[in-house]
Design a binder for these strands. Sequence first.
DNA 1: ACGAACCGTTGAGAATGTCAATTATTCAGG
DNA 2: CCTGAATAATTGACATTCTCAACGGTTCGT
Lengths: 155, 155
Amino acid sequence: MAPAERTRSTGRDRLRDSVLAGDLSFLLARANARALAAANTALAPHGLKARSYSVLALAADEVRPTQRELAEFLHLDPSQVVALIDGLEQRHLVERHADPADRRANVLVATEAGRALFARAQDAVRAVGLDSLASMTPRDHERLAHLLRLLAFPD
Amino acid sequence: MAPAERTRSTGRDRLRDSVLAGDLSFLLARANARALAAANTALAPHGLKARSYSVLALAADEVRPTQRELAEFLHLDPSQVVALIDGLEQRHLVERHADPADRRANVLVATEAGRALFARAQDAVRAVGLDSLASMTPRDHERLAHLLRLLAFPD
DNA sequence: ACGAACCGTTGAGAATGTCAATTATTCAGG
DNA sequence: CCTGAATAATTGACATTCTCAACGGTTCGT
């Protein structure tokens, strides 16, 4: 049996048939790293990163999230949420509103400018997102979203 | 139509039907964050983190990766690979071998102790990994791995 | 033999993650 | 009503990680 004949080709991608490459957590990490890098370059012209984009997205939604809810949802420390919102608020993209139900809490809402910027940023993200997902059928895309939801939100 | 009746339940998880929650990149990020946290706590007793575990895994394999190959494969800066290997080498888990084909390059191989530790760490990772994936059929598990591979390695 | 490109390494500075302490507010129980 | 425990946001300190530029040693094309 000829040894090491299959994937020697260029010298790159040689590690792709290691045991690690079959690990789901590793695939998750690498797929995420790629998506994150793509999103960040797409968002850079708008002065956003993946984090601030996520916060803006939730602010632009009608959900009126609390900072603590943002922290849990985005897997961030509350102090990071403070810094993130500070940055967006200084640019007049979001506002902290006092929560009428709990005066300790702030509720985050997007300004008109914030919603406008989010719409543009969302288009930019979608444009590059399709680059990586173009070879995937809508059916598979939906399947992947479903399976990832199981991992992301284990009830 | 009754407003906001569906997912108000506990107050937690209230953001789950925002537009962001439907975004594939976000699901990827959150699923990865969860898997990473689980892996890190499982690896902590063995003195490893996800990063060092990955490096050790590739060293324990028969692939004899170059540091540059490690950097590209793990989406890391070459300088980070240096620090990672330094840590593992000081614990006599891996060794840098001169690449006979290219004297500039180092090839990474695991020591006997390194392979033994990796085996134990792998068991620990698998044990907690199943916690999140127990509700998934082997069929779906394979499907997910296949779809993630498309994103992780876009040829 | 020469210069360009490449591998590993080092170091610096920015960005991010983690954690404890503080203030203001809510909530449960006496 | 009052008191103490718990919670929301904030601040600050510290560790870890990311990003980048520079450098010596090596390979490769010409």
